[in-house]
């Protein structure tokens, strides 16, 4: 991610959350979706995205399928049952983290 190192630890959560909403997505689609949702504020770099996707796949959180689109093969990622459960856990963890950070940086808002 080029914008900030602060986002780096949340990359897996971002991917899981998007897949939770979209059923299945391919790598390029994920980068474009994040860009659109954050109005260009957050760019997931390709160099970080694919290692993260492959790691999540190895952990059994993602399943893959390949389809022929136009004149090429496209690899889609989708959540497994474990992945869906893990998404909920990760989102809870992230919410807790945001709450803690808010309490630290702006105590009045917390």
């Amino acid at each position: 991610m080029s914008n900030s190192k602060l986002y780096k630890g949340s990359l897996n959560t971002i991917i899981l959350k998007l897949l939770n909403e979209q059923d299945k997505m391919y790598g390029y689609e994920i980068t474009q979706k994040v860009k659109a949702l954050t109005k260009g504020e957050l760019n997931i770099t390709e160099g970080a995205l694919y290692p993260a996707l492959h790691k999540l796949e190895a952990e059994g959180l993602l399943d893959v399928e390949v389809a022929k689109v136009d004149n090429r093969l496209r690899k889609y990622y989708k959540l497994t049952e474990t992945g869906t459960k893990e998404t909920a856990n990760k989102l809870n963890e992230l919410a807790e983290y945001i709450k803690t950070m808010q309490a630290l940086v702006s105590p009045k808002l917390a």
Binding site: Y26, Y28, Y50, V69, R72, L73, R74, K75
Partner: peptide, 10 residues
């Protein structure tokens, strides 16, 4: 295959 599709989309 995955990287070719990514580059092609881009």
């Amino acid at each position: 295959t995955e990287l070719v599709d990514h580059l092609a989309n881009d």
